[in-house]
């Protein structure tokens, strides 16, 4: 029961704090994007090959680009308050529908990379701490250091060479086989096979981060008195390592996982480009190139939103891992 009330308090507190953050992000990003030279009218005119000053002005007027910045910002916030992310001049559709078409793919990629990195990272870290200073630790440390140092997207490219080009086991791009009309298990297997390389590519770096962190946190916890108590009680080594040491070492790891979410989303941009994954990251990159600021603002806003929401989940996880952590 206490956990439930604490959970409620944490959620309410974070939601209240999130409102100024979201407004701040909108204003900051809006002003930042207004600094970018050129606007959507320039790009549309450039792509159509020719444009008169009149038609440029017409485009600008139609999308409200000719108004003062403060009015544009006011308009944007007004629409946002009505849950509208605006309209994309380039794709001729609403930003919300554009993002919604891409969001599931990015969330899928992020979620699988997040789970992979935490599961493998914590497992590696625990093993390294268990065998600290012996050869399994050294061997795994080298592997982890490589994951930590090599660009993830490059490891992904190398994985394409090995698993797609040489061995032919996994597809090298896309989110599913184009034109194939799979159902049931086949559908799932097809999507999974497309997901494996991109999510590992995104996860490599974070596997290393969590493995290193878990190892050092576990070694730190191992030195504390309550571990000696547990040993004195005659608990088995395995129980001490999993329940007492790992349990307490998880707190800094989950904190880090929350902090790293933004990095995970940013890394997705490159990984999505490498694997032709139809996610938000590539949408953002296209939006930068075509000066489609409504889309870019939408993506920035939504990614911040994802980061805030997952951080709430991390907070809740903390309260569950360590009852001493109260909603302050």
């Amino acid at each position: 029961m206490r956990l439930v009330s604490r959970t409620g308090r944490t959620v309410v507190r974070t939601l209240i704090q999130a409102v100024p953050t979201v407004i701040g992000i909108v204003v900051l990003n809006f002003l930042l994007l207004k600094l970018v030279p050129g606007d959507a009218a320039d790009v549309i005119a450039g792509e159509s090959g020719s444009a008169t000053a009149q038609s440029m002005a017409a485009i600008r007027h139609r999308f409200g680009l000719d108004q003062p910045i403060i009015v544009q910002l006011g308009n944007y916030l007004y629409h946002l308050a009505h849950f509208s992310l605006g309209y994309s001049p380039r794709y001729n559709t609403s930003v919300a529908s554009l993002i919604m078409a891409r969001l599931p793919f990015t969330l899928l990629l992020m979620f699988s990379a997040f789970v992979l990195s935490l599961a493998i990272g914590i497992f590696f870290g625990a093993m390294m701490s268990f065998f600290a200073r012996r050869w399994p630790d050294r061997l795994m440390s080298v592997l982890v250091l490589i994951f930590y140092s090599a660009p993830g997207f490059w490891l992904g490219l190398m994985a394409i060479v090995l698993f797609s080009v040489k061995l032919g086991w996994l597809p090298s791009s896309g989110a599913s086989t184009i034109g194939a009309n799979y159902h049931g298990w086949q559908f799932l297997a097809d999507h999974l096979s497309h997901l494996i390389l991109p999510s590992f590519s995104l996860a490599f770096f974070f596997i290393a981060v969590y493995a290193r962190l878990t190892r050092s946190a576990m070694l730190e916890v191992e030195r504390q008195d309550f571990i000696r108590t547990a040993q004195a009680k005659g608990l088995r080594d395995w129980t001490i390592q999993t329940k007492h040491v790992l349990g307490n070492a998880l707190i800094p790891v989950t904190t880090m996982a929350g902090l790293n979410l933004g990095h995970l989303l940013g890394g997705a941009i490159v990984v999505e480009t490498v694997f032709g994954w139809p996610g938000m990251g590539r949408l953002a990159l296209d939006a930068v190139m075509s000066r489609d600021f409504n889309v870019l603002l939408g993506v920035l806003l939504l990614s911040s939103f994802v980061v805030i929401v997952v951080n709430v989940i991390v907070d809740l996880l903390h309260a569950w891992l360590d009852p001493r952590i109260e909603a302050e």
Partner: peptide
């Protein structure tokens, strides 16, 4: 602190892309 948190919720790589575009 709020200002720092603001920056931390924006994916750093995306921010770098936007600034290079500016």
């Amino acid at each position: 602190v709020r200002f720092t948190e603001l920056f931390q919720t924006v994916p750093p790589f995306l921010l770098a892309v936007v600034i290079v575009a500016i």
